[in-house]
């Protein structure tokens, strides 16, 4: 898969000397969904703003399909659609007029059929003559997506698309994003909902303090970074760990009939078989065993905390 966006040593320092992006390097593949995951103030929006032209680049280069975003901005912006984080819309404009305005702003000829299909896909067609002010927050978010897609971009930036959106609408939004991917649109999504990244992203980039901490395929990330925990339920409450089990670093719980054992999911030798046979030989009676894999959220927290 070829790269559609290349970000090289991108720096963004604001007037107050705050460094929002610190030599960021990132390649985004054509047709993928990549989630930029990071806490508030990590630099996610600054990164998007630099690529889209909303904020000026301090140093470094950004290329979109080989074109420089500063020098060849007409070509790069033509390829990009942006859904901002805030519900920034002209309140007294009608939905249809607003979407038409966006298409025209990008220099595209009128194409009512395309816009009609777009509004239908986003369940906005029956609201096309309503003024934006009268729409719910979720519908306004859809209008922003329609505006961003009105000029048929190849790349879509979604800056926290489900912030403040209820669960049902969030799921709706995910299915829209997946549909866009099927249509060949490359999607860059910022979020601090780990669940969102887990559900829809192909790759995840973790960003914190203006630096990309890691970029990997979601599945790789989970399997590489993930820890597993084996919970062993015993018949009796154990007061201490028998000497023969010390090397397993088991966790013991006061007044609870259980032990916990951590192991990495990626390793071939988990130590479970040895542990269980040692438990049996030390005379501890087992009732049940259960395994649990750490979530992406736990991985994310660990990465950010280690930064």
């Amino acid at each position: 898969m070829s790269n559609i966006i290349e970000i090289q040593n991108l720096m963004k320092v604001y007037d107050n000397n705050y460094t929002a992006l610190d030599k960021v390097n990132l390649s985004i593949k054509k047709g993928e969904i990549i989630a930029l995951l990071g806490p508030n103030g990590a630099g996610k929006t600054s990164l998007i703003s630099n690529v889209c032209g909303i904020s000026s680049i301090t140093s470094g280069n950004v290329f979109v399909e080989g074109y420089n975003v500063e020098k060849e901005y007409r070509k790069t912006r033509d390829l990009i659609g942006l859904v901002p984080q805030e519900l920034s819309l002209e309140p007294f404009e009608k939905v249809w007029a607003s979407v038409k305005f966006s298409r025209q702003l990008f220099g595209k000829k009128r194409n009512d059929n395309y816009l009609e299909n777009l509004l239908k896909k986003l369940s906005l067609w029956d609201k096309k003559n309503q003024i934006i002010k009268s729409l719910s927050g979720g519908m306004k978010r859809r209008v922003l997506i329609a505006k961003a897609l009105s000029h048929e971009p190849k790349i879509l930036f979604l800056d926290e698309p489900t912030a403040g959106v209820d669960v049902e609408l969030r799921k709706d939004m995910w299915s829209i994003i997946k549909e866009l991917k099927n249509d060949g649109v490359t999607i860059i999504l910022t979020t601090h909902y780990i669940e969102e990244a887990e559900m829809i992203a192909d790759r995840i980039a973790v960003i914190n303090n203006g630096k990309i901490l890691l970029v990997d395929k979601k599945d790789n990330l989970i399997s590489k970074m993930s820890k597993k925990t084996l919970t062993i339920y015993t018949k009796q409450i154990l007061k201490s760990i028998p000497h023969s089990l010390k090397k397993f670093n088991l966790r013991i719980f006061k007044n609870e009939k259980k032990l916990e054992y951590d192991y990495t999911a990626s390793g071939n030798k988990t130590g479970i078989t040895t542990l269980l046979s040692k438990i049996k030989s030390s005379g501890i009676e087992l009732i049940d065993v259960q395994t649990r894999q750490s979530t992406l959220e736990e991985i994310f927290v660990e990465i950010v905390n280690n930064d």
């Binding site: 889209c52 909303i54 912006r77 901002p84 002209e90 990008f106």
Partner: peptide, 17 residues
């Protein structure tokens, strides 16, 4: 000023204009 106030200048700035 209104687009600035409403935050809709993002559209102007991200368009090929």
């Amino acid at each position: 000023f209104f687009p600035k106030f409403l935050g809709t200048t993002y559209e102007l700035l991200s368009a090929p204009i």
